[in-house]
Computed example of a mutant assay.
Amino acid sequence: MPGLLESCKKLFKTKDLYKVLSLKKNASPSEVKRGYHKLSLKVHPDRVHGDGKKTATEKFQVLGKIYCILSDKEKRAVYDETGEVDDEDDVLTQDKDWYDYWRILFHQVTPQDIKEFEEKYKGSDEELADLKDLYCEYEGDMGMIMDGVMCCTAEDEPRFIQILKDLIKKKEITEYKGFTRSITKTKIAERKRKADEEAEEAEEDAKNLGLGEEDEALKSLIHANQQSRAKQMDSFFADLEAKYAEPEKKTKSKGKSKKK
């Protein structure tokens, strides 16, 4: 079995535990927890199917070990000083259920959390920053941008396009050809049509689940899941749980397994 640093190099292309989580060395405990949560959501084995599931499982386990080190004051201090980790550490070598460990750290998100987050996020500076980052990352491809911005619907696209045009005019962002090509009437109509179809499917699924008008947040969540917006949902859940979750007290005895 390769050591933790070797596994990091193989799976994440770096031996730096901070770089794996996209953190600075002076990151606060809450930033460490947030960084771990965001990345572990992206590689969670339940989100991957087929041949990639084995690699996702390995990444998920490695991230759990990284968090065990960086969240422990003494272990982190040793790593910061030496750049090495103790692969013989019981916490790192024991055959633990990393999913259960992850679930202990983070609560499930409630529909009310989703609703409150969406209301606070839309039109915020955080949404604007995400929009700019996604524009640059995807070089103006509006389809990819719409897949990436949290909580957005087809109704938000005209607003986003106008914001980006204004930013281009102010020379705050580069004017990409991909942006011009992706905001034609035909492209916008195609995305709107697809979104409408997905909304209808979400409504049907909501009815099948017995959800009423009071469950709009859950309907929105179903809709987002049907759109297969992996990146959007990863970031969405990470932000929500980082804002609302507190460590959950373990109530079950050590010998009992968690039933799902």
Score class of each variant (00 low, 15 high):
Leu17Cys: 05
Lys13Tyr: 15
His44Ala: 13
Ala202Leu: 02
Arg47Trp: 15
Ala206Ser: 15
Lys38Trp: 07
Met146Arg: 05
Ala77Gly: 01
Thr184Asp: 02
Met146Tyr: 02
Glu203Ile: 06
Lys259Gln: 03
Lys243Ile: 04
Lys75Tyr: 14
Asp46Leu: 12
Lys207Ala: 13
Asn225Ser: 12
Asp80Tyr: 10
Glu116Val: 14
Asp90Lys: 11
Phe60Tyr: 14
Leu105Lys: 09
Tyr244Glu: 07
Gly255Arg: 10
Ala245Asn: 06
Phe117Lys: 07
Leu134Tyr: 12
Glu190Val: 03
Lys185Asn: 06
Glu201Tyr: 09
Ser30Asp: 12
Phe179Glu: 09
Met233Pro: 00
Lys250Val: 14
Lys132Trp: 03
Lys250Leu: 10
Ser22Phe: 12
Arg193Phe: 00
Ala189Trp: 00
Arg159Met: 09
Lys33Gln: 10
Ala129Asp: 11
Val149Cys: 03
Val32Lys: 09
Lys187Phe: 01
Leu221Thr: 03
Lys170Ala: 13
Ala77His: 12
Lys171Phe: 04
Glu88Met: 09
Ser253Leu: 14
Ile188Tyr: 02
Ala242Glu: 14
Leu164Ser: 08
Val109Asp: 02
Ser124Ala: 05
His37Trp: 09
Asp196Cys: 01
Cys151Arg: 06
Glu88Gly: 06
Lys177Glu: 10
Tyr244Trp: 08
Gln112Trp: 01
Gly52Ala: 14
Leu134Pro: 00
Leu70Ser: 13
Lys122Phe: 02
Ser124Cys: 04
Lys75Ala: 15
Asn208Asp: 09
Gly64Trp: 08
Pro29Val: 07
Ala27Glu: 04
Asp239Phe: 06
Ile188Arg: 05
Leu134Ile: 08
Lys73His: 11
Glu139His: 12
Val78Tyr: 12
Lys54Ser: 07
Glu214Leu: 08
Tyr79Ala: 03
Thr153Gly: 00
Asp16Ile: 02
Ala77Ser: 12
Glu116Leu: 15
Arg229Tyr: 02
Asp147Pro: 02
Gln112Gly: 00
Val109Met: 11
Phe106Gly: 00
Leu11Phe: 11
Lys54Glu: 11
Gln162Phe: 04
Lys33Ala: 14
Gly210Phe: 02
His37Thr: 01
Leu39Phe: 13
Tyr135Leu: 05
Thr110Ser: 13
Lys254Trp: 14
Gly178Ala: 05
Ile69Leu: 07
Tyr244Thr: 07
Phe237Tyr: 15
Glu201Met: 13
Glu127Thr: 04
Ile163Asp: 07
Pro45Tyr: 01
Tyr244Ala: 04
Asp95Ile: 04
Arg34Asp: 06
Ala230Thr: 14
Cys68Ala: 13
Ser220Lys: 14
Ile183Glu: 02
Gly140Ala: 09
Glu116Pro: 00
Trp102Val: 03
Thr251Pro: 00
Ala238Met: 00
Val48Asn: 11
Ile104Tyr: 10
Thr184Leu: 05
Leu41Lys: 09
Tyr138Asp: 13
Lys96Ser: 10
Lys171Glu: 15
Glu203Thr: 10
